[in-house]
């Protein structure tokens, strides 16, 4: 197989035009789409996450990398679908009821899409009932909840309880995040995981699904 490490570079550098051009050329040359994803793009996003952790990268670089990744994935996805390849998982995401802040949630959604997940974004101020019905209808693997305000954090607990009442709690993993949210809070309300920032979203989502 030809060397496509320039795709890795393009994603790490957040260069969406280069990423799309390299992907298109690679596919025309009959490169294996799955290998492009697994050997270039996923390691590239892992490197982006590493750079975020050590403060070489901040939110703008994360967003640009996720956008480059997403653009390439859109070219590759039809080919993967032809072969019957599935997304890594299906995530229903939203900011919980009473909370209108969606910047953090949007970042996490972009990272997950970039990480090969199918993301159903319900927006902000999402009721527990809507999380439940969407998780049910779309057969979600993960429900991801965001809150920026301390006063809306209890809506996370209410949403988990609604998933339990609907008999879905054993079928979906619940991940939570947002400025006031902590690991302890996640444990306290019975979530499956907590992410301190958008860069942790993909590794965390893969981990709870055992992938």
């Amino acid at each position: 197989m030809a060397d496509y490490s320039n795709l890795y570079e393009a994603v790490v550098n957040g260069d969406n035009k280069a990423a799309a051009a390299i992907t298109r050329a690679a596919l025309e040359a009959n490169a294996d789409p799955l290998e492009l994803v697994n050997q270039q793009m996923i390691p590239a996003m892992a490197e982006v996450g590493r750079r975020f952790e050590c403060e070489e990268y901040f939110v703008p670089e994360l967003l640009l990398a996720a956008r480059a990744m997403k653009g390439s994935l859109e070219l590759i996805r039809p080919l993967l679908a032809e072969r019957g390849a599935q997304p890594v998982g299906r995530v229903v995401i939203g900011t919980v009821k009473g909370d209108l802040h969606d910047i953090g949630k949007n970042l996490v959604a972009s990272m997950l899409e970039g990480g090969g997940f199918e993301v159903i974004d319900l927006g902000a101020d999402v009721s527990p009932e809507r999380f439940v019905s969407t998780a049910q209808d779309k057969k979600a693997d993960i429900v991801a909840l965001s809150a920026l305000l301390t006063v809306t954090m209890p809506s996370m607990k209410t949403t988990i309880e609604a998933l339990r009442s609907a008999g879905l709690r054993d079928r979906v993993k619940v991940l939570i995040g947002g400025a006031p949210v902590t690991e302890e809070y996640a444990a306290q309300i019975g979530a499956d995981g907590y992410g301190a920032n958008a860069a942790t979203a993909v590794p965390l989502a893969r981990k709870v699904l055992g992938k």
Partner: peptide, 12 residues
């Protein structure tokens, strides 16, 4: 409030 030392803006 961002970064290890909480001395950066969200955008760095």
């Amino acid at each position: 409030d961002s970064g290890k030392n909480r001395d950066r803006t969200m955008m760095g």
